[in-house]
Design a protein around this nucleic acid. Structure first.
Length: 852
RNA sequence: GGGCGCUUAGCUCAGUUGGGAGAGCGCCAGCUCGACAAGCUGGAGGUCACUGGUUCGAGCCCAGUAGCGCCCACCA
């Protein structure tokens, strides 16, 4: 180590992430270690495709957790020597991006519609080049080791080809079709959306009861929360088993305000218990009614248009009103005509657009759909036969399978400008679908674009060059190994990737789906900007460092939703700092002329090697089970409690005095440091890499490509663990006694060892001088007799002893009770009973020693 | 309406197949001990939501109750 580096190490007493993280990241990039060669087979290689963030997006806590997990897996496998690729890219995010740009342009005084499609698209591309890299740069701050040289975008030229290929093929196979069908119309974005983009919210509406006169006298009373839709009624339905209405089935009612004759039909869907048991049927504006309408061949009338206004299918006086205005007008007229039979508040679930937040207007509209049932079959099979595995298996496997079993057609067209314009061309009555525009004059391309999720569905293979299956990247890295995601997009995205991948590549896209936590705000609410509950991961990184945030997220993560915990991030910061300082101790004091490696001469060296390898085992097992929380917490425990609190304290004298055993101490410490840095690197890459750069004679060019430690059973040493474990327990017992007896911290006690030889380290760490001399014992602690010493408060000592006696008596009583229980002795396993007997004997002996 | 999950220390959470309740933070007491005060040492603190059951033994298994949360669903 040159003098300047040494000086830095000496003077930097705190880990300062802000000062070094950027430099560390640059070294990784310069090393080219994130950019694998496209060689080898998918079986021997390791790859993950990132859930593509929206190109408009900013890194939020969900990305941070999701990214940290993937990065840990990627780094681990890279360190295990596999050719490893983390496929990076962004999503064009149709609606989200279009609205961001649209808003910006509107503020500048140019509404989108005025501007025209082409000019607008151009503006969005400009915007994309200006800001689209923001989130990618933010992933770098997190330390994400993606392949930044192969970044993709869902509107790349090649990607569009893949999308068009898939669309055209699905059309050719008869899965994709165009139809007039009931869709979820989002008035906010003026587009159809799929049922997965709809969320139900509880709303209190007014439930109106309205009398529909029958044409031969009498009336039927229907109940509705949307009286304005009655203008489009085409039937009234009752339950066929409802005695009250048996003889009106087949008759006709007269629709008030309109005068249309409505057949009274029978349908099982009608609940006789609800309202009056008579249901107005509006096939044009209600999902349920639409289906009843199709089943009964009813006319479909649309009185609310895509602009949300009443259409000319309604009586003239209502035309042009908004739905809300029409409702008021309808109610007013009904009241005048004395047809209103009641109104009451009614709480029910109402669909809202996930995108715009506006209330969904179910409308019949000409849209493109994709039939999913056949695609779903294979996607069900691969989960059933375990080729694709959810982690945790439950509840996700069941939820996935249930949903796939009753999958519905997917509305894939969107009335937007930003996205993949459908590869469909019309000329008069003709329709052409293909990857390229058709030959000939007069063809007009479809105006609609595809649902963003349609292109996302191809992500794992389209990013690697498909449909060109000869692409080296595709051959080397597809199928990928694992998909890491939160559960909210299992249907929207994960299921669809599995379906399209099986259909078009014949392969599963990934074998594991790891579903991680959703991070909530500390108070348990959703983390969201609009609620003001969001916590910006970049703020956390700026304040505590990327390693701290990553550690915190790992520590929090589970299979349940979790609340964000600042304390966990601070724990990570503290650990990074501890690593830095422990490393300073080692690097500044160890001899650099030794060959690092485990040493077996001294028990404490054997002990740390054994403990280290147990830690390697548990951490590795946890990662294999995707249990990141236990992985990092076990790592923390090993590093802090065993390596720092005990081993470093134990070896310090050998290190400082440069005498007896210092070579072994140095070799052992440098080796342990090397191993533990590698073990921690997937989780805390920056601090570990920076420390590694100070290692004398490092075995690897950089820690990022250092070999990940493997368990060596030869190093597990039960006897060393027992011996040092005993010394630790004794040290702690003595310290406890000192504290309780009020012995000043610096005062050295004298003691006599009773029938065993305490380790030298106990003497030092507990500040107890062992002596052969006699003297009056004033206390006995775990077999060690403490001798009379000046300055000890005898009352405190007696109190301490009495407290111990109390505890022992309680333990003895408990043990006796248990062992005198015939059931226990007869039925409990022998080893449990033996253990209980041994404990009891030990407690009795100690109690006797303390005089009762 | 159906399904699932949660309830453990003041707070956030761990608790493997049933065999003496754990961590981090916070709190209390004492420490400038030649890495670290973002530190060191010691300590206090829990009817494991409630009720009942199974068992020699239950935080863990079973049944029920209450509260919270999530997902699914076409009762207007």
């Amino acid at each position: 180590m040159d003098a300047e580096r040494r000086k830095t190490l000496e003077e930097t007493t705190r880990w300062d992430p802000g000062a070094v993280e950027q430099g560390v990241f640059d070294r990784w990039m310069e090393g080219g270690w994130f950019h694998p060669s496209a060689e080898g087979s998918p079986a021997e290689n390791y790859s993950i495709s990132i859930p593509p963030p929206n190109v408009t997006g900013a890194l939020h806590m969900g990305h941070a957790l999701n990214g940290s997990i993937q990065d840990a897996l990627i780094r681990l496998n890279r360190m295990r020597g596999r050719n490893t690729m983390w496929i990076l890219g962004t999503d064009h995010a149709g609606i989200a991006t279009q609205s961001v740009v649209e808003k910006e342009l509107a503020e500048q005084g140019t509404p989108r519609l005025e501007m025209g499609r082409e000019a607008f698209i151009e503006k969005v591309w400009e915007w994309r080049y200006r800001y689209g890299n923001t989130i990618v740069e933010q992933y770098k701050r997190l330390g994400a080791s993606c392949d930044y040289e192969r970044e993709r975008f869902t509107l790349d030229e090649g990607y569009v080809k893949a999308v068009y290929r898939v669309f055209a093929e699905l059309y050719r196979k008869g899965f994709v079709y165009r139809d007039n069908y009931m869709v979820n119309w989002d008035p906010g974005t003026q587009s159809a959306i799929s049922e997965l983009e709809v969320e139900n919210r509880e709303v209190t509406d007014t439930l109106y009861r309205i009398a529909y006169p029958l044409d031969d006298g009498g009336e039927l009373i229907v109940a509705t929360v949307r009286p304005e839709t009655m203008l489009a009624d085409t039937a009234v339905a009752v339950n066929p088993n409802d005695e009250r209405y048996r003889d009106v089935i087949g008759k006709h009612a007269i629709l008030p305000l309109v005068g249309r004759r409505l057949p009274v039909i029978a349908d099982e869907h009608v609940d006789p218990e609800f309202g009056t048991g008579a249901l107005k049927i509006t096939p044009g504006h209600d999902q349920n009614d639409f289906e009843i309408g199709r089943a009964n061949n009813l006319q479909e009338i649309s009185v609310i248009g895509e602009d949300g206004l009443i259409t000319d299918q309604a009586p003239e006086r209502f035309r042009g009103m908004t739905a809300a205005e029409a409702q008021a007008a309808v109610i007013a007229e009904l009241r005048d005509q004395d047809l209103l039979r009641g109104e009451e508040p009614y709480a029910h679930n109402v669909p809202f657009s996930h995108r715009s937040g506006e209330r969904i207007e179910p409308l019949i509209s000409l849209q493109w759909f994709c039939r999913m049932d056949e695609l779903a079959k294979h996607a069900i099979d691969v989960v059933n036969d375990g080729r694709v595995r959810f982690v945790p298996a439950e509840p996700h496997t069941k939820v996935y399978l249930d949903w796939m079993e009753r999958i519905r057609p997917w509305c894939i067209s969107r009335q937007l400008w930003w996205g993949h314009r459908l590869p469909v061309w019309y000329r008069g009555e003709e329709t052409y679908v293909g990857e390229e525009a058709p030959e000939g004059e007069g063809w007009e391309q479809e105006e609609d674009v595809l649902d963003t999720w349609f292109s996302s569905a191809l992500w794992p293979y389209a990013t690697l060059g498909w449909p060109d299956t000869k692409m080296p990247e595709f051959q080397a890295f597809f199928p990928t190994d694992v998909l890491v995601t939160a559960r909210d997009i299992i249907f929207l995205w994960v299921a669809r990737m599995i379906m399209t991948s099986l259909e078009f590549t014949g392969e599963i896209p990934f074998s594991d789906v790891y579903v991680h936590s959703v991070i909530q705000a500390p108070d348990g609410r959703r983390m969201s900007k609009s609620l003001g509950t969001g916590i910006d991961p970049l703020d956390e990184i700026a304040e505590h460092g990327a390693d701290a945030l990553r550690f915190g997220l790992f520590a929090m993560s589970s299979t349940q939703d979790v609340r964000f915990s600042q304390a966990r991030v601070q724990q990570g910061r503290d650990l990074a700092n501890k690593m830095w300082n422990a490393s300073r101790l080692i690097l500044l004091n160890a001899r650099d002329d030794v060959e690092p490696g485990p040493r077996s001469e001294r028990v404490e060296d054997r002990w740390i090697a054994s403990r280290l390898h147990r830690a390697i085992a548990t951490v590795s097992e946890s990662i294999a089970a995707y249990d990141f929380s236990h992985a990092v917490l076990d790592l923390y425990d090993f590093f802090w409690s065993e390596l720092c609190d005990w081993y470093l304290e134990i070896v310090k004298p050998r290190l400082y005095d440069g005498d007896d055993g210092d070579e072994d101490a140095s070799a052992s410490l440098l080796w342990a440091l090397d191993q533990v840095l590698a073990l921690a690197h997937p989780f805390m890459p920056f601090v570990t890499e920076e420390i590694y750069s100070y290692m004398p004679d490092p075995s690897a060019e950089a820690l990022v490509i250092h070999r990940f430690p493997q368990v060596d059973d030869q190093l597990i040493d039960e006897r060393a663990e027992e011996e040092i474990g005993g010394a630790i327990a004794l040290t702690r017992a003595l310290r406890r006694w000192r504290d309780l007896a009020g012995v000043p911290a610096k005062q050295v006690l004298t003691a006599r060892a009773d029938d065993r030889e305490p380790h030298e380290l106990v003497s030092r760490l507990a500040r107890v001088q062992f002596s052969e001399d006699g003297g009056e014992p004033i206390a006995s602690v775990s077999g060690v007799e403490l001798l009379e010493t000046e300055g000890i408060d005898p009352r405190a000592v007696e109190a301490r002893i009495e407290e111990r006696r109390q505890k022992l008596r309680a333990e003895v009583k408990r043990g006796e009770g248990k062992l005198s229980n015939e059931g226990f002795v007869a039925k409990a396993p022998a080893d449990v009973v033996d253990a209980e007997r041994e404990k009891l004997a030990a407690y009795r002996a100690e109690l006797e020693e303390l005089g009762g």
